[in-house]
Structure formats: structure tokens, C-alpha cells
Design a protein around this nucleic acid. Structure first.
Length: 877
RNA sequence: GAGGGUAUAGCUCAGUUGGUUUAGAGCGCUUGCUUGACAGGCAAGAGGUCGGCAGUUCGAGUCUGCCUAUCCUCACCA
């Protein structure tokens, strides 16, 4: 069969993906085998595949495919989360385009639209993951709002409430005026931005005196209920007990003294707006100040502001500033860089607001989650994230879990007046109410369910439990849980990872996963985070199209140390694509050979096969070690080098029959088997090209697929043989260099002389080795001599001197200079070793092996010096 | 303000409990190679006193301290 000269991913990817799926290789049911499970970090149901997902899911797929080849019962559970804020925003926008306002809809009707939207557009990303080759157990696809997952969420809410770990409290919250919901501390971003600091005069009541306060939010002036100064501030001592007049609205407020005020900052006088600033709120609490909320949930001023009612807070900032200026109360405006808090989702500036919300009392559930990470029961890769984790966990704050949205899990709390009843169902809540209030006549209609839904993370934190229906099916859970590893970005260590660990211990008394592999963040070459607004993120699907899934997977992996930044460059995918072609052309070569069963195996090939077994063994050893440490890019690089350098560049050159000559069956079989092994070893990283080559390489029986192939057996590598080949390869490189520099063609066979030494005698006496050397270095003969022959071109390899016997003019001066430099280097080396060996403390204290090695280094170095000096005596005057 | 990471070749990074012929890879760079697998390729080569200083040790890229640079997390900021 004729093969194209290049590997074409588009021809094979869909074919193999559906083959694997139809064979049921992705699906898992509990059985006698050891389980290997991973739960996907559920992407946002509104999401589309981006670079972060590709990295993350490539890694998960590599781990799953590796475990599958090892014969484990692998289960990678896919799914999506319902992303309250993002999805609700999408649905609202979609409705607005249809001319429907959310406020005109009932909750039920809105949810109908939302589900419709979800069914239609949600989960595109799961389809896209297939293009990447993700071998998820699609039959287990989960959604945070489907029945099983929802039941779990309600159950834990009720559990936490009943055990006193959940409460409803009035607090200053992070309000997102665009999404019109509260956010948790973990969902807001602090960033330094350019702002202005406004200096405003507040007149002292009953006098012409004034004091100046500095504020960055003049639009909140109308909510001021005090002016505060530091009690130690001499400048304001005389104002104790006096009152100030709030500009524009002329409210009289007390001048209070509070340690919070920083004498150094601004004017040392602070306007206090308890309704719109967390610190001001605290001051207000201490001094019993009135709380006047002047900003609405949509960020506009309300009637309490008295002026500019209905204006947006940023518009009001301008108009109020104008008013102040006109009134002669604006002293100055300074440029000012300050940290601004924004919503992670909508990017709108967070408005601090006083609000009644539900909180999880984190201190009551944090302990086992902290302890078991610190003692490595749950192991982090890289380990440095333990520090970050500990810091956050030790300073943990309560988790605000209610959201003022409709798309999500509605809070299972029912109110009757001031009383609250938390239960799984309205009926249970009613029973509770009837008993507690001693009012058997109450009906469901008398109770009012909380209007709010729960934070999406409040369902995600149960993911490793609920995807296995763990609260109802303990048997299945026991088989897959704890899952083996969680693969996710470090940016959600608090939002998700920490909380999953807490939930695991809280409800299962067991960790959710053994290992956490934190991926790096994908950045562009300039280290900028990839983002839509910068437009520096390549389109994932286009990338897959352009380089093939294997190429992209290679590209993502080859530059991604765990936890570090990943500087993405398309060139890396290109390298992956080229690697596919390299493997493909190796297949092409082998397929072109004809086998002659009557041929015996040549000594050289016998030797080469033995050598390659050793190389393979040491490669597998390195790869296994790297997998254990999750050094996946390292593992890939060693396989890349094994396949490209060891197999293609060296082994195939050693085995290759002469042009149009047949090959013996043993050599052929070995060559095929080694490539087959390479396919198995590389399969987790590059599943498509390896499956294709695997099948083209030789006839395979039904079900004999690379995805489930046997891992190559573990052999021990022969260090002595590896060293011998290292010498052969070095001699070959030297000969090639001499050819290069002297314009000698490859076809021109050369004669090689070696000066007699242990090393060269051992080499020459091994026919197999000599034949390998002759073949790859295009050498006609290798003979020994007692001293270096006159003429020819000399080189030193290992610790021995060689001579390529050709009639060319040698540039004696250049060679002398090179020899001299070489000699200096060797003398320095030997001197260093001698010094070490002369040190009695070294000889007495260092391990025997280390001392032995130094002796060998010394002997080898001396031998090299001898050869260099001999050559110099010959050619340097 | 609290905590942490990193510093090795032009670039991006490995270097595992201190000892392996006085530092490795990929990319980039230089030179040479088109008739037999592959120019998306092959071969060869150049390039680093491991951020600085001090210390521990027989021995430090590796451990400790200090300094410098840089990045990150959390909290605060009128």
C-alpha cells in the first residue's frame, strides 16, 4: 500500500475517535480492577474551548490514557457547571433581543427560557473536547443543575444549617450592580487603577470655620453621617463635640474621633458613609451612626440622596463634583492611584452594600482540609501551592453563598415572618413551622421561600462526590472515590480546590482526590495573559484544524511545567505536527522494506537491537519516574528524543538495508516491534497518530488497538553496552565532522586507524560493534596501530586517538591551535582532580564510589593528555 | 501590611536525597548537505565563570544567611 509522504490528521482523527468510543474504551463500570478516576473541572456551560481548557484537558487525557494502558479501570467524568451569573446574563440578553424584559417574566417562565437556552447552546465545549481527543466517559456526563447534583446541593445546605455551620447575616457585601447580585470575596478582583482624590470643605456648624476631607467618592457625600478624625490629631482637637455640615444637602453630622483615621493620609479628616464603605460601616457601628443608603441595587442614586436621584453613580460623581465646585466647596482634585474592586464576571466596580445574606461558617469546616494538605495526605504538585493554600485557610473568612439570581439552586429556606425554616422540601418546612410555632393550621401558602439561589461553587464543591451520585450510591462512590488526581489551574485554588477538600472531609470524611496537579496559566510570548480583549488568544478549533490534535497536544505539553506560566507559541504546535510527520516517515521507511526469510541476521543488527533494548529500558525508566512526579513535559521530551534521535536518527540508520536490498526477518521484526512500543509509549500524548501508525505497521486482530495496548515490558538496561555505543556515536560524529570540513562525500568510504588502548582493543575485537560503526560512519576499515600514524586527520574520542586516513592537506597551524586549547583544558581538568585526590579529608570522607570515579577521571584525563601531546609532537613544530 | 515563588545559553525551561569526565533540552543562530523514509528533513558547530556576597561541607547550580532584581497570592487603602 502506498502511503502519503505526510501524516494528515484530518483523515484519521474522527475515524479513531469514533472507533474508540464505539468499542466502549472510554466507559467505566466498577469491577475487580484497580480504579483510576478523574473528575473534569466542569467548564462553564456557556463556554467555548479556549487555550486553558486545551492544556488542562490534554493533561487529564494523558493521565487517563496512561492509566488505561496500564490496565486500570479508568473513569474520566465530564460535565459542565451552570454558571449562574454568566448564564443568566446570556439568557437575559437573548430575551432582550427578542424584546422580552426579565422583569416582565415570572421566575418559572424565565427558567423555562433558561433551560431551553441551555439545551440548545450549553455544552458546546464538551463536543469540542472530543476534537482534542479527550477520552471522557460520556455516559457519565453531569451537570451541576441536573437532578442528582441538585439534590446533593440541597442536602448539604440543610446539613450545614442543622449542624450550625450556616447562618444568615447582615453584612457589608460585594455588590455587583450590573449582575445585580452579591459576590463572594473570591469572586472580586483588586487592581490598582488611576483615580482621583477630591478635597472637599465641610463647614463647622455655627461658625465660618471649615475642615477639609479627602474622598475618592464624592457621589456618596449624601450618605455621610459623620466626619471622623484621629483623637491624637492636634489639628482637630478643638472640634471635639462640634458638628459639621454635609455639603450640598446641608445635613448636620457629628465630628467623631476614631483611631481608624490615619493622621498622615489626606487631611487627616474622613467623611463617614456607613452605608457604602466597609470601614465606614465599622466606624458607624462603634459610634452608633445612622446608615443612609443612597445607592440602589442598579448603581443609581435613590431618593435618600436627595439630589441627582436616578443618576448612575459614576455620572453622579461628575455632577456632584460640579455642584461642589459651584458652591466653592471643592478645594482641589488630585490624581490618585488606588485599588479598585471589580466583579470577576462583569468587570463592573463592586459597590459595598449592607445586605442580609447566607454564609457558611468556614472556621467550623476548615480544619481537616488544612491539616491533610499540610501533611501531604492530599498532595499538591507543585508543592509550593501548599503555602498559598495554608495562608488562605488560616485566615479564612465566611463564604457568602446566596446570589440574587434565578438561574441556580433556589435556597431551601422558607420564612414565616421573622422565623426561618430550612428543609429539603416545602412540606418539611411547613411541618417544622407548624410544630415550632404551634400553628397546625398553617399551609404552604403561608410560607415564603427565599427568592435567592446559591453560588455556583456551592454545587461545584460537591462535584467529586455528586458525579458518582455519592450521597445515594455509596458502593459506586467507594470504588471511584477518592479520585486519583485533580487537574486544574492554580487560579481557582480557593474558589474550588480548597472547598472541594473541605466538602470531602465534611460529608465523606475522606479527601476528594489524592493529588492535585496545578497547571500554569497560558500566556502569549510577551507573558501577557491570554484574553479576548487583547485578542492574543488563538482560536482553539482553528489551531486543532491547522496542526491536528496531536500537534496541538504536543505544543501545549512541551512547554508546560506544572504551576508555571506557559508561554504559548504556535511554533510549538508546529513542532508537534513535525513530530507526527517524523514518525510517519519512519513508518514509510519500514513499509518500503522487503523481507527475505532466508537471510540470517547480520552481527551489526544483532548488536544494534541489543543496544536499542537498553536505550528503551532506560527511557521507560525515566518516563515512569517523570509520570510519578507529574513532570509530563519532561516525560514527553524524553519520548520525543527517544523516538526521533535514538530510533530514527541512530537505530534506523543502523538497521537500514542497502538500497533496494531485502532485510532479514529478525531485524525487520525488531524494527517493527520497537516502533510499536514507541506508539504505545507516546499514545497518551499523541493518541491519533500513534493509533494510525500502530494499525498500519502490521496486521492487528480485532480489539488489538494502541489505546489498550500492553505497555512494553520492563527490561534492565546494559550500562556497558550503552557506553560502548556512546563511543561509537562519538567516533561517528567526529568522522562526519571531518567529512564536513574537508568536503568528503558520504559515499566515499574512509579508512580509520585507532591507537591501541584498552578501549580501542575492546572495540575492534567486537565484530558487531565494528560493523555498526562501519555502517553508520561509512568507514571501510578500522585497524589498530601502536602509535599514531603519519598523515590523515586525527581526532580524539573517549580517551583514545583515531585517525581518518585521507590524503588531504592538513592545516597544521589550525590543528595545533585546537590541540593546544584542548590540552590546556585537559590539564586544568586533571589538576582539579589531582587536587581533590590529594585532599586527605576527601579521600577519607567521600564514599568509596566517588573516590573511585575521581581516580578513573584522573586516569582518563591523563590518557587524553598523552594522546594530545603525541599528536602535537607529530605536527606542531 | 502579611505570606510566598523565581533568578542557569540569545529566548523558554530541565537539572530529582549535595558527588556521573568540571552544566542539559527545545527553539533561535552559524556552516555544510537535494537521487532512495523525512528540506515540515539530515549532519556538524558556536554559545553559560548557574543574579551578587558571605557561610556550612572533603565537595555547592543544588543547603543556610544577607543583598539585588522580578513575579504572584491575601488583606488594606479617605
Amino acid at each position: 500500500m502506498e502511503l502519503s509522504t505526510r501524516f494528515n490528521p484530518a483523515d484519521v482523527e474522527d475515524k479513531w475517535y469514533s472507533h474508540w468510543e464505539s468499542k466502549g474504551y472510554f466507559h467505566s463500570e466498577p469491577d475487580d480492577r484497580e480504579a483510576y478516576s478523574i473528575v473534569i473541572p466542569p467548564p462553564n456551560v456557556t463556554g467555548v474551548l479556549h487555550m486553558g481548557h486545551m492544556l488542562n484537558n490534554t493533561i487529564q487525557d494523558i493521565l487517563i490514557r496512561k492509566a488505561r494502558i496500564e490496565g486500570k479501570n479508568t473513569c474520566w467524568v465530564p460535565g459542565t457547571d451552570h454558571a449562574s451569573i454568566a448564564t443568566e446574563a446570556k439568557v437575559v440578553r437573548m430575551l432582550r433581543e427578542k424584546g422580552i424584559k426579565k422583569s416582565d417574566l415570572t421566575r418559572e417562565k424565565f427558567l423555562e427560557y433558561a433551560w431551553e437556552w441551555k439545551e440548545k447552546y450549553g455544552g458546546i465545549i464538551l463536543q469540542q473536547l472530543r476534537k482534542l481527543g479527550a477520552s471522557c466517559d460520556w455516559e457519565r456526563t453531569s451537570f451541576t443543575m441536573d437532578e442528582v447534583r441538585s439534590d446533593g446541593v440541597l442536602k448539604v445546605f440543610v446539613d450545614l444549617y442543622n449542624s450550625g455551620k450556616l447562618y444568615r447575616g447582615l453584612r457589608m457585601v460585594n455588590w455587583d450592580p450590573e449582575a445585580k447580585t452579591v459576590l463572594s470575596n473570591e469572586e472580586v478582583l483588586h487592581n490598582d487603577e488611576n483615580a482621583k482624590l477630591y478635597y472637599v470643605k465641610y463647614m463647622i456648624e455655627g461658625s465660618d470655620e471649615f475642615l477639609t476631607v479627602a474622598t475618592k467618592r464624592p457621589e456618596t457625600i449624601m450618605g455621610d453621617t459623620a466626619v471622623a478624625v484621629n483623637p491624637k490629631d492636634e489639628r482637630y482637637k478643638h472640634l471635639e463635640g462640634k458638628r459639621a455640615i454635609v455639603p450640598l444637602i446641608n445635613r448636620s453630622v457629628p465630628i467623631i474621633q476614631d483611631d481608624y483615621v490615619d493622621v498622615e493620609f489626606g487631611t487627616g479628616a474622613l467623611k463617614v458613609t456607613p452605608a457604602h464603605d466597609p470601614n465606614d460601616y465599622d466606624i458607624g457601628q462603634r459610634h452608633n451612626l445612622e446608615v443612609i443608603a443612597t445607592i440602589n441595587e442598579d448603581g443609581r442614586l435613590n431618593e435618600k440622596a436627595q439630589i441627582h436621584v436616578g443618576e448612575d453613580r459614576f455620572e453622579a460623581r461628575k455632577t456632584v463634583t460640579n455642584d461642589l465646585e459651584e458652591a466653592g466647596l471643592l478645594v482641589k482634585v488630585e490624581e490618585y492611584v488606588t485599588s479598585i474592586v471589580r466583579s470577576e464576571r462583569t468587570n463592573s466596580v463592586v459597590e459595598p452594600m449592607l445586605s442580609l445574606q447566607w454564609y457558611v461558617d468556614m472556621k467550623k469546616i476548615v480544619d481537616p482540609a488544612l491539616e491533610n494538605v499540610l501533611n501531604n495526605t492530599v498532595q499538591f504538585f507543585p508543592e509550593k501551592f501548599k503555602n498559598t493554600y495554608r495562608h488562605w485557610m488560616e485566615n479564612i473568612r465566611d463564604w457568602c453563598i446566596s446570589r440574587q439570581l434565578w438561574w441556580g439552586h433556589r435556597i431551601p429556606a422558607w420564612y414565616y415572618g421573622e422565623e426561618v425554616f430550612v428543609a429539603l422540601t416545602a412540606e418539611d418546612a411547613l411541618t417544622q413551622a407548624q410544630e415550632k410555632l404551634n400553628k397546625p393550621e398553617l399551609t404552604i401558602d403561608d410560607l415564603k421561600q427565599d427568592e435567592d439561589v446559591l453560588d455556583t461553587w456551592f454545587s461545584s464543591w460537591l462535584w467529586p462526590i455528586t458525579v458518582f451520585d455519592g450521597f445515594n450510591d455509596p458502593e459506586t462512590l467507594k470504588y471511584y472515590y477518592p479520585t486519583n488526581v485533580l487537574v486544574t489551574g492554580w487560579d481557582i485554588i480557593f474558589l474550588w480546590v480548597a472547598r472541594m477538600i473541605m466538602a470531602g472531609y465534611e460529608w465523606e470524611n475522606e479527601k476528594p482526590f489524592h493529588h492535585v496537579y496545578f497547571t500554569g496559566m497560558v500566556r502569549d510570548k510577551q507573558r501577557r495573559k491570554m484574553s479576548k480583549s487583547l485578542g492574543n488568544s488563538p482560536d482553539a478549533l482553528e489551531l486543532l484544524e491547522k496542526f491536528g490534535a496531536d500537534g496541538v497536544r504536543f505544543g501545549m505539553l512541551s512547554c508546560s511545567p506544572a504551576g508555571g506560566d506557559l508561554l504559548f507559541d504556535e511554533k510549538l504546535c508546529d513542532q508537534g505536527k513535525n513530530f507526527c510527520n517524523k514518525l510517519w516517515s519512519a513508518l514509510n521507511l519500514i513499509k518500503g522494506w522487503t523481507v527475505d526469510d532466508s537471510l540470517p541476521i547480520p552481527a551489526a543488527n544483532q548488536k544494534a537491537i541489543e543496544w536499542f533494548h537498553s536505550v528503551k529500558a532506560s527511557t521507560i525508566d525515566a518516563v515512569e519516574k517523570n509520570f510519578k512526579e507529574y513532570r509530563l513535559s519532561e516525560a514527553l521530551i524524553s519520548l520525543y528524543s527517544f523516538a526521533w534521535n535514538d530510533y530514527c536518527s541512530w537505530f534506523l540508520e543502523m538497521m537500514k538495508p542497502d538500497y533496494q536490498k531485502p532485510i532479514d526477518p529478525v531485524s525487520y521484526q525488531a524494527t517493527v516491534d520497537f516502533l510499536s512500543d514507541i506508539c504505545t509509549l507516546l499514545h497518551p500524548f499523541m493518541p491519533f497518530v500513534t493509533e494510525e501508525i500502530w494499525h498500519l505497521l502490521k496486521e492487528r486482530s480485532e480489539g488489538e488497538d494502541c489505546i489498550v495496548s500492553q505497555p512494553p515490558g520492563t527490561e534492565t538496561s546494559d550500562e556497558h553496552l550503552l557506553a560502548q555505543f556512546k563511543l561509537i556515536k562519538d567516533i561517528t560524529s567526529n568522522v562526519r565532522d571531518i567529512r564536513n570540513k574537508n568536503g568528503l562525500k558520504k559515499k566515499e568510504l574512509l579508512d580509520l586507524m585507532a591507537v591501541k588502548s584498552d578501549e580501542t582493543e575492546a572495540l575492534v575485537s567486537d565484530k558487531g560493534l565494528v560493523d555498526v560503526l562501519k555502517k553508520i560512519a561509512f568507514v571501510n576499515s578500522l585497524d589498530l596501530s601502536d602509535t599514531a600514524p603519519d598523515g590523515g586527520i586525527a581526532f580524539i574520542s573517549g580517551k583514545s586517538a583515531f585517525n581518518v586516513m585521507v590524503e588531504v592537506k592538513v592545516d597544521a597551524e589550525a590543528e595545533c591551535a585546537k590541540l593546544k586549547a584542548d590540552l590546556e583544558h585537559q590539564l586544568k581538568f586533571v589538576a582539579g582532580v589531582e587536587k581533590k585526590l590529594a585532599n586527605e579529608r576527601f579521600v577519607n570522607n567521600a564514599p568509596e564510589q566517588v573516590v573511585q570515579l575521581e581516580h578513573k577521571k584522573l586516569a582518563d584525563g591523563k590518557a587524553r593528555i598523552e594522546q594530545i601531546e603525541a599528536r602535537m609532537a607529530q605536527i606542531c613544530g
